[in-house]
């Protein structure tokens, strides 16, 4: 819960700010990608902010999460620093992963963030393992796995659910049903309509909540966390949400109907939450504008930080393979660099 207890007015504003930060961060990432400043693949979380923030606002700071290829929102919701995130997106030495991971692999294990993940469905087994460790050590924490609707078709997700259920582990599984698995609509990938019904096979509760409402996700995950901490085992929460952007930046999106985007935008998680807070007198239009411009500044500063950060040294590529390095790597590298003179491509 930390600073984001949405039972309090202060916490609600923080949740709103966190959602705005995700939106601004990813809008900016989109621009930087289009300008060629970010290499590789970028998967944006825009539209789904209520899920990450709703879930993380129901967690304690030392709880673990596993993330997905669409992980920026989870990172920010878990409290990671936008500067080091942006530096990672730009492949800089001061990024969370020293530039070795990029957008798809941002991690901060010390902060409980066990990594964005480029493999669909790989997170739930990791969360099950983290929950197993919590259980073995007798700690008062939980592990939560975010995964998409697409991952529900992956075998290892079901294995993770079965293990966590069988062992009654303190785990929470959150399906982010954003209506598309890569470039194919969800209904073409699953016979199930309510993906939370998957839970029935494992004799655990499965519930479906409005993933565009941060309060709904928060409440569901809070109950799931309580259940996990009471020793009652895992819960499967399906948050029904919508991905505004393509699967990846540059996706031509032949599978999408523009009308649908407009329909979902009417329920925008940030706009609707702001309106609710405004209606209860907790924030004014002016204050919201001010919040947005602060968030803009935060993200601008993150971009500046990232741009100013040093590039990694090319030979850093040979570091971090092992805790106890294999001599082969240094030997091969030495031979490569001795023979090759100036290395590096012509990008």
């Amino acid at each position: 819960m930390g600073t984001m207890n949405i039972e309090t007015a202060e916490g609600r504003l923080e949740a709103l700010r966190r959602m705005c930060t995700i939106r601004e961060f990813d809008d900016t990432a989109s621009e930087l990608f289009a300008d060629g400043e970010i290499p590789g693949f970028v998967h944006l979380y825009i539209g789904e902010e209520a899920v990450a923030v709703g879930a993380c606002s129901a967690l304690e700071d030392d709880d673990y999460i596993t993330s997905t290829h669409r992980g920026h929102g989870h990172c920010i919701a878990k409290g990671l620093d936008p500067e080091r995130m942006m530096a990672e997106l730009l492949g800089k030495r001061d990024g969370y992963c020293k530039g070795k991971g990029g957008s798809m692999h941002i991690a901060d294990v010390d902060a409980g963030m066990l990594g964005a993940n480029g493999i669909v469905g790989a997170g739930p087994p990791l969360a099950t393992g983290a929950a197993l460790g919590i259980d073995q050590r007798g700690e008062d924490r939980v592990a939560l796995a975010f995964f998409g609707d697409g991952a529900v078709a992956q075998g290892q997700v079901h294995e993770a659910l079965n293990l966590a259920a069988t062992w009654s582990l303190p785990a929470v599984f959150v399906i982010e049903n954003n209506q598309f698995g890569e470039g194919t609509p969800v209904e073409e990938q699953h016979h199930l309509d309510n993906l939370s019904e998957t839970a029935e096979a494992y004799d655990i509760p499965g519930i479906t909540v409005d993933g565009m409402d941060v309060t709904a996700v928060n409440e569901a995950v809070a109950e799931a966390r309580t259940r996990a901490r009471n020793g009652d085992g895992p819960t499967l929460v399906e948050a029904v949400t919508y991905r505004y952007r393509g699967h990846f930046e540059g996706d031509p999106q032949p599978y999408r109907d523009e009308e649908d985007v407009e329909e979902w935008r009417e329920r925008d998680p940030i706009e609707t939450f702001f309106q609710r807070l405004r209606d209860r007198g907790e924030i004014t239009e002016e204050e919201f504008e001010a919040m947005r411009s602060e968030v803009e500044t935060t993200v601008e500063e993150a971009v500046e930080y990232a741009r100013d950060a040093p590039e990694p040294e090319p030979e850093d590529a040979y570091e971090d393979m092992f805790a106890d390095p294999a001599p082969e790597i240094a030997q091969f590298a030495e031979r490569l660099r001795a023979d090759g003179g100036e290395r590096g491509g012509d990008r």
Binding site: Y64, T66, V109, L114, A122, P124, P125, L126, A127, T128, G129, A130, A131, L132, G133, I134, Q136, R137, A143, G155, Q156, E159, A160, N162, L163
Partner: peptide, 15 residues
């Protein structure tokens, strides 16, 4: 896949 993955997750968190 499940229990090897759980082992990896447990190891990543200190076990």
């Amino acid at each position: 896949a499940g229990f090897v993955g759980a082992g990896v997750g447990a190891a990543a968190t200190g076990m």
